[in-house]
Amino acid sequence: MPTTQTNPSGHKVLFVLTSHGELGDSGQRTGFHLGETIEPWRILRDAGHTVEFTSVRGGRPPMIGHDPADPAHTAFLADPAGGGLVDTAPRPEDVDPAAYRGVYFVGGHGTMWDFHEHPALHRIVRAVYEENGGVVAALCHGPAALVGVRLAGGGPLLDGQAVTSFSHEGETARHLDTVVPFSLQHALEKDGAVYTCAPDRHPHVVVSGRLVTGQNPQSADGLGRRMAELLATV
Rank of each mutant, 00 (worst) to 15 (best):
A127S: 15
H168M: 02
S183L: 04
H168K: 04
V128L: 08
L23P: 14
L188I: 01
P119H: 05
A99C: 07
H33P: 11
Y100P: 05
A144S: 13
S55M: 05
G58D: 13
G24T: 03
A78E: 07
V163D: 03
D114G: 10
A98M: 12
R210Q: 14
G170Q: 08
T54H: 05
V16Y: 11
A99G: 04
G148Y: 04
F76V: 01
M112A: 09
L231H: 03
A152Q: 15
H66Y: 12
I43Y: 11
R225P: 03
A144D: 06
S19C: 12
H20V: 08
A72Q: 15
H49K: 06
E130F: 05
D177Q: 01
D221K: 09
P68G: 12
G107R: 07
G148H: 06
P71H: 02
P2F: 09
G82L: 00
E22P: 02
T172G: 04
K12L: 06
S9V: 03
S219P: 14
L157F: 10
L176S: 05
L223A: 15
T54N: 08
Y129K: 13
T196Q: 10
A98E: 15
P97Y: 06
G84C: 10
P203G: 11
E131Y: 11
V149S: 09
A145R: 04
E52V: 00
R91P: 13
G58R: 13
T6N: 14
L223M: 08
Q28R: 12
E171K: 02
G133R: 09
D159N: 12
G110D: 12
V180S: 02
P71T: 08
V16F: 10
P62V: 01
G133P: 11
V86C: 01
R210W: 14
D114F: 03
H118C: 03
T88G: 05
R45F: 03
G24R: 12
S208I: 09
R29V: 14
T4W: 01
E189G: 00
W113G: 02
H204N: 11
W41D: 00
V180A: 04
V56F: 11
G160Q: 09
N132W: 13
G27E: 14
D96T: 03
A162P: 07
L151A: 08
H204Q: 10
H168Q: 08
L158F: 15
M63K: 01
E169R: 04
V125E: 08
E189Y: 00
P143A: 01
E93W: 02
H175M: 06
R225L: 06
Y104P: 09
A193F: 00
L34M: 15
V180I: 05
V51S: 07
W113V: 06
G160F: 12
L146H: 03
